[in-house]
Design a protein around this nucleic acid. Structure first.
Lengths: 193, 193
DNA sequence: ATATTTTTGTAATGATCAATACAAAATAAT
DNA sequence: ATTATTTTGTATTGATCATTACAAAAATAT
């Protein structure tokens, strides 16, 4: 291929941008913030991301989606998926203070973009629903295999878990305290017994 | 008192501004948005709110706090406080589509301001904690009076309810559908029986 | 070697941002 | 009546915003 070789790795750039968007949100993140974080100049930036800030944000959001999908693969391969889900939630209570304050990029996006950008909001909602369906599937399987006593409709229990996810990602900013969070998460997971 | 009489009612102004902040958030709301919504010119605005946009936002947030405190009064006077709390949550499932997308101003503020403005974030967190304590108090009373079988520590159950509040205010944007929401809320309140 | 293509770095664009300056207007106090 | 005080409307400020223009740099293709 012809042309001057690129010195920026696309995936790395998106990763660095994701970090900024995650802490400051879309609106409050200036392009300067992004350029500083990535080391790019605006020339390279707009050459790579023709859609500007919004395209980059969408890519950062979808990189996050891939992380959730990796969890899906792990769930499918596990023979104790509910244990994985349990630990997924319990792992929140192993994060540090700053991570608690960051919450979840996808939840943050739903909250911020609901009135600002339908595209991005719907994309974030779709990711949450995908995640919810992972839960639902695992619950259905656990009920069928008899490892879960609770026979409540898996759809309802799946929504219970995504609501817990949504909620705990706000509550952890009220109580960025791993002892409190673990106690709370364990209590809320009891229902899955 | 001397001077030209004010034509703007302070409380009304804050109310109108609150509506804008509630839908667009702090950062994405421009001063022009505020001036348009209130009918004020920037002269009157900065004369009234010396602290600028941030002071107005804080006042809007605290006006919301007053609404929560009105609920506290109702709780204290009621002889079935748990029924009031139950209906408080169920009332979410009576809102219209746009209201679902708005979520809760206080939750929105915690999410948006965590990395942007410690003052405002802490103020919002304080409001959520106040609300949590209302729940805790009512639960403790219901347990003492024997109207609630579940004997779990009221502190944990209070945190369960504020996490439900935080979560459902995101989930309602995933499912702005009153049937789904009511079913979900009722299921999640079963634990309080 | 020269032409073509792509990426880069920098400077500049016009729009929008929050906030201020300031004089006219409208009242009360003297 | 004159002065003092406060609110108002408008014009303007300087900063920051996202984006574009454009030429130099660096590679490949001919």
């Amino acid at each position: 291929m012809r042309g001057r070789p690129a010195i920026f790795d696309n995936k790395e750039v998106i990763e660095k941008a994701q970090k900024v968007f995650w802490t400051k949100g879309f609106t409050a993140t200036s392009l300067e913030d992004v350029l500083t974080a990535t080391g790019m100049g605006s020339g390279s930036f707009y050459n790579t991301f023709k859609g500007g800030k919004k395209e980059l944000f969408r890519k950062a959001l979808n990189q996050r989606r891939e992380a959730f999908r990796a969890f899906e693969t792990a769930l499918n391969q596990s023979d104790a998926p509910m244990e994985l889900i349990r630990d997924f939630f319990r792992s929140i209570a192993r994060a540090d203070h700053d991570t608690h304050l960051q919450g979840c990029l996808v939840v943050n996006t739903v909250v911020e973009m609901a009135a600002l950008d339908k595209d991005l909001e719907e994309e974030a909602v779709a990711i949450l629903k995908e995640t919810e369906h992972l839960y639902t599937k695992a619950i259905r399987r656990a009920q069928r295999e008899g490892t879960m006593k609770n026979q409540t409709d898996p759809v309802i229990l799946g929504r219970y878990l995504i609501t817990l996810w949504n909620g705990i990602n706000v509550t952890r900013r009220m109580y960025p305290d791993n002892k409190i969070l673990l106690k709370q998460i364990d209590m809320q997971l009891e229902i899955l017994r």
